[in-house]
Each structure stands twice: as C-alpha cells, then as structure tokens.
Design a protein around this nucleic acid. Structure first.
Lengths: 178, 178
DNA sequence: CAGACATTTCAAGATATATTGAAAATAATG
DNA sequence: CATTATTTTCAATATATCTTGAAATGTCTG
C-alpha cells in the first residue's frame, strides 16, 4: 500500500467526522475526501466502489456537494458519464460555505431573535426584562458575525479579515509535533 | 399565553436546531434554551417537566452543558436540589465554545494533516504531488484559523478581532425586517 | 426518434443515535 | 450511621438517519 493510498483512507475518515462541523453530511464528507485524494476527476461508479457504498448514495452525496459548491460536475463531450472534480481554490470553498450557511442558518436566526425581542417589548414583568436582556446580548453577537461574514463575502478576499497574511505565515511554519 | 411563554417555546425550537452548529447535541440545546428563557435558575425536575422530557435525559444534557461551560450548577445550602443557571456573559460563552472545539476538533485535524503531508513527502508520483498540494493549501487555512482562535483566547477580549466594535454597532441598529 | 447507456429517485430495510425509566450511587440531615 | 431526598448511570427501547437497489427518468448517438 502506497503512502498516497494510506493518506486517502485517513482523509475519508477525517472528512466523515468533520463534514458535519461545517454543515455537510458525513456521507457527503466521505465523497469529498475521496475526490480530494485523487488528482484525476472520478465518476460516481469509481467513487461508490472506492468507498464501498452504493451508486445511489454517491449520487445523493454528489448532488449535495455540488449544491454547496465544493465540487464540480463535468460532462466530457462524447460520453454520458459525469465526472466529479473537487474545487481546489480554498478561498472559494470557504466563500461558498460561509455564504450557504449564512443564508440557511444565520439570517433566519437573526430574524427569529428580532421577532422574539419585539414580542417581549410589551411584557414589562421582571422575568421578561431579564430574558429580553439576554436575548439582546446574544443578538448583538449574532449580528456582529453576520456583518463580518457579509464583509468577507463582499470584500472579495480573505485579506479583509487579515486571514491571507495568516495563511501565508502558517504555510511556512509546518511540523509542530502532534 | 404570555409573550414570554411564546418566546420560550420558540427559543427551545431554535436552540434544538442550532446546538449542533456549535457542537452541542440537540437535547442539550433545548435545555440551554429553557434556562435562557427563565430568569430564575431551574432544577432538573422543572426542566424535565417543561420540556416534556425525562429526568435522566435532562441530567445528561446538563452534564454536557456544564462541561462546555455554558451553564452553572449551584447547590443552595440547606437543600439537596441542584439549580442550573445559564452563563449570561456572551463573551465567556463564546470563549468556552471556541476553546473546547479547538482542542477537541481543530488541533487533532491539524496534527492529522501534518502526518499526511509528511508521509506524502516520500511519494514522488504525479498524483501524490497534486494531492499534497491540495492538502497543503487546506492546512494553511486550518492553521490560520487555529492561530486566530489562539489569539482570541489569549487576547482576553473580542476587541482583538474587531468584534467588540461590531457588537456595539449591531446592538443599536436592530429591526431590519425578516 | 428509437435504443442504449447513465443518472436520479424513493420506498423498504439496515444502522446509528437519542430517550426512557428503573436501579445503583451519592450526599445531606437528624 | 441509618434514612431519605436527589442525582447519575445504563440497558432496553423508541426514533431518526443513512443506505440500498430496483424502477423511473433523463440524455446522447446513429
């Protein structure tokens, strides 16, 4: 077994657990890992065989990943197969994930909090006062993160957040023991 | 039904879905929401009754929340009951969540990536070259976020990230329609 | 536009996760 | 230190989620 093959297996295990952290399902995470581990784009058949999964499951996972914008589906002319290729521009991946999560989760949360605060304005009891205060503080942070992500999405580059310089610095200083 | 009671119910639904986003289970999220919705600290019995859950489930959830540092367990002298109170300092909550996730998830991820990159260094095939490049780019971002969180955890205040000013700004400008 | 090759869908079944409730453990009081 | 109020644990059970595979749908070529 080559080093590459071993790394591929580890990648699959990692992404299976980490996918949920940024909002994608474990199954889709495994497919993403598989694609990241292969230089050549793969078709659904190969992925299913490699992950010991079924054709249908891979189809679902790929649809999810295309939806998130972290992989691309390519139809080479002269063939009916669909080839999947991972997006390798990390900034683009982050952008898509931030964008998708913002509108799926963050914006609705903010709207709910605003609604809750509004209905509590009428209630002048001591208990309501305290709860309103807490929600207002939470809303402050949620709103701040919301604006931060907006700035990131508009600003065009990681640079706005100082991330770009950090990435540069981080790439040079590898290999701190586990 | 008062406005406060309605808001409590909505909070529970929100936190049930959002808990997983920052790493706690849906059940623990509901308990956290229940506590946030009540000005007075609550005992496990009250929580179980309020959420129509069982005594045991609440016990597990509270242990998880105390572990995360987002609620406090208080033993009032002269009684055997344990009262639970949510931490209301939002900065402290964020700090605990960032800290816990960093060491549970982020640090191991970084170590794995370093290990994978190291074993790929030997493999000089074209495929390995491409995969190594991708992993290196990913490692750059993971490492950058890691350093960012370290800076936040040490720096003592949200201020370091510019979040503090954002929170101030956000709190004044409420009520953009849903 | 028919035939063949591929993909997507979806209901049934398999698997994993969460919940319950009663028994064991713990802590406080007289 | 026995009693009682309370919490924690954990095996059984209920619930939700993921996977499968066959049928339906789509799409490219001659």
């Amino acid at each position: 077994m080559t080093a590459l093959e071993r790394v591929r297996g580890e990648l699959v295990v990692m992404w299976d657990r980490l996918g949920p952290l940024w909002g994608i399902s474990p199954a889709a995470g495994r497919v993403h890992a598989w694609l990241l581990g292969h230089a050549e784009p793969q078709d659904a058949e190969q992925i299913a065989a490699g992950l010991e999964s079924s054709r249908g499951a891979v189809s679902m996972a790929c649809a999810e990943l295309v939806d998130w914008g972290v992989i691309l589906a390519e139809k080479p002319p002269g063939s009916r197969r669909v080839l999947y290729r991972p997006v390798t521009d990390v900034e683009q991946i982050i952008r898509r994930i931030v964008q998708t999560r913002k509108q799926r989760e963050w914006d609705p949360l903010l709207a709910h909090l605003d609604g809750a605060l509004e209905s509590l304005e009428a209630d002048r009891s001591a208990g309501a006062e305290e709860v309103r205060d807490r929600l207002d503080r939470i809303r402050g942070v949620v709103s701040a993160v919301d604006r931060l992500s907006e700035r990131f999405l508009r600003g065009g580059a990681l640079g706005t957040l100082g991330l770009k310089a950090l990435v540069r610095a981080a790439r040079s200083g590898r290999k701190r023991a586990p």
